Computed example of a mutant assay.
Amino acid sequence: MDVELRHLRAFVAVAQNLSFTRAAEQLLITQPALTRTVKQLEAALEVGLLDRDSRHVSLTPVGAEFLERAQQVLLAMDQALASTREQVALRMGFSWLLPDPWAQRTLARYEQLTGSRVSLIRVDDPLAAVVQGHIDVAVVRGPVDGGSPARVVHLFDEARVAVCSVDSALAAADRLRWDEIARWPLVVNTVSGTTGPWSWTDGGGPSEVVETGNFDEWLESVAANRGIGVVPEVAMRRNIHPAVRFVPLTGAPSSPVSIAFLPDHLPRLLRRFAEAAVDSAR
């Protein structure tokens, strides 16, 4: 029988605790399973490592010497794994401004828990990039098509604000009602935008729509006074363009924020990332 790391970890836990009960609790396994694992190690080495009776556990002389070497092996393996994990970067895609402070908290929490890094990648269509394997996890705003193979985890909802050119008649307004949006041409990012004709289920949306294919085109079109836009309010906290102004909206539906990833891709890392993302959203 080959000696595996699980055999070494089981023996070291018992040797350090001098108790099968405490070692089993530490390793989160049953005591009979732990006993079998240690016996397998002794059988493979053809030597007794532990003396045990009904109330006491102690190391044999050979066991004491083997303990030191087993600890060195496990330490070297843990160091090798930690070094490798530090070089693994989880690719997180986003189409434009990340929600704050959620993004900063999530990255810090995930990197602290795993020792891995997060690489930030801007893409026009994050959900498609996940499905195509260009990124590992996507930050997605707005509703997600139920036919996507990606797993979607809803995090929170963002409030919306209107944005217009400094030359627009709307620039001097104190606020705007959601039902007034239809009076203005609406500039829409058809790839990753959060607001478009689909946002009005009753057909009460704007009659004139200016379509763009990404965030930069959308922003420059608004700045050029081709129409107004509607975005999550995080944009108000960023100086995204000197030629636009933000107008608070009342009565606007909120915009969902989610993360999306393929269920079978990097399951350990993405599970930890999802946990960090959900915790940071609370």
Rank of each mutant, 00 (worst) to 15 (best):
V3Q: 02
E4W: 02
A13H: 01
Q16S: 13
N17A: 15
S19A: 11
F20L: 10
E25G: 08
P32W: 07
T37G: 03
T37H: 02
L41E: 07
E42I: 03
A44T: 13
G48P: 00
H56R: 15
S58C: 08
P61W: 04
P61Q: 10
A64G: 12
E68Q: 08
E86I: 05
Q87H: 14
F94D: 03
D100F: 00
D100G: 02
R105A: 07
V123P: 02
D125Y: 05
V130G: 07
V131T: 14
D136N: 10
R141P: 00
P143H: 14
V144P: 03
R151I: 11
A162I: 08
A171S: 15
A173M: 12
W178V: 11
D179C: 07
P185D: 11
N189D: 15
V191T: 15
T194D: 10
S199W: 06
T201P: 07
G203R: 14
S207V: 10
V210F: 04
V231K: 02
P232H: 04
E233T: 07
H241Y: 06
P242R: 10
R245Y: 02
R245K: 11
P248V: 10
T250I: 15
G251Y: 11
P256I: 08
R268L: 13
L270C: 08
A276M: 05
D279V: 05
